[in-house]
Amino acid sequence: MTKVMNKVKSDIYDTFLSTKFELLKHYRRNRIQMAVLMAIALASVFYLIPTIWDIGLAETAGDFAQLNLGFANLLIIISGALFAGDIISLEFENRTGLILFPTPQDHNSIFVGKYIASVVSTLSVLTIYYLVTALEIQYVYGLSEISTEFLKSYLFSILYMCGAVSLIFFFSSILKGAITSTLLGFFSLMMIMPITEQVMKMVEIEPWFIITYYGGLITDFFGVAQTSGFGPGDRFEATFAPDFYTGLMVMLGYTIILFLLGLFLANRRRGE
């Protein structure tokens, strides 16, 4: 029993070390700095442009949040690709010490640590994005205008982010090239899935199992139904509306299943 407990403790510490090391790597590669700058820039667009051009801000805090947080989806995808796109594939491509140095560290701890580092980095960027938006709302409309919907939107976006990171992590585990895995992760969330979504809507099948189908829900908390989409015009819009609870399940499913699959495949690749 004590032996098992010691092993668990040791594995947790190893996972922590791996996470810390990955965060250091993201920092040294200037990725965290880039993503943070991007988050601040995106969160400032709908405040700075109307202010500079003097065209007036959104009338209500809800409208402002809805406009501003419209970039959350994009930010999650870019940050996810930045932090998880090559997290496994690059180690195999460069045959780094992490793969080739035999240490007492269990490889599951290394891979789990890598995943956690991707999630933590993306979450930090997302949090900064929400914080800047909250500061703008507080400055323009007052502190009382930061509603519970804002918090709900934040929590929902975290879940969406976990699903997206798991998907990108999965691609990084199966693909050999670091650039290929990063691009596939990015374009699958940015283009492939949204196109598939639209095609399915066109043939009147609800794309309930596609994670990007629920991306719009991040801003739907502010009382606006999702109408925007990818594709030529709005002919296929409003046929289906994504269900919140199904969305939660799908995102949880993506997060857990793709993470575990990625972990399994990364371990299998190591043994090849």
Binding site: K25, R95, T96, P104
Partner: peptide
């Protein structure tokens, strides 16, 4: 052990790399 020709993290310093492995040990 030194196996094959391991790729190094170019953006890190030996201090950072060795510190991490020291903690692993």
């Amino acid at each position: 052990a030194l196996i094959e020709v391991p790729g190094m993290y170019d953006y890190l310093t030996p201090h950072e790399l060795l510190t991490h492995y020291g903690r692993v040990y």
